[in-house]
């Protein structure tokens, strides 16, 4: 039997995970774009960092975020006994 408390606690933790992921998502895409011209003065392996964040850095972060989210949620499911049979 799943109690209301379990669901609420599960959902609270889910919201924390969601907010963290959305925060990182926002920073690597929008902040990186707003500060792109200052970031461009840093050059690594020929890549100006402002351009690099838009072209590759942000999207690599997105992939990692989705992977971490999937892992973390599987853990949460187990912790609260809400995983699929």
């Amino acid at each position: 039997m799943i109690t209301k408390q379990t669901i609420e606690a599960y959902w609270r933790e889910n919201k924390v995970v969601m907010s963290l992921i959305m925060l990182i998502w926002f920073v690597v895409s929008y902040f990186a774009a707003i500060f792109a011209s200052s970031l461009n003065s840093i050059i690594i392996f020929g890549f100006p960092m402002g351009y690099y964040m838009g072209a590759q850095g942000s999207i690599a972060t997105f992939v990692i975020l989705n992977y971490l989210y999937s892992m973390k949620m599987n853990e949460l499911d187990k912790k609260y006994g809400l995983e699929e049979e």
Partner: peptide
């Protein structure tokens, strides 16, 4: 589009991948 627009074209790169974070999480 990247060739022609330089940095401006990156809106498509980020836009068309960042949407999958929204999709996966929300």
């Amino acid at each position: 589009a990247l060739y022609l627009q330089g940095y401006d074209g990156l809106a498509f790169i980020m836009g068309w991948t960042g949407g999958y974070v929204l999709l996966a999480v929300l």
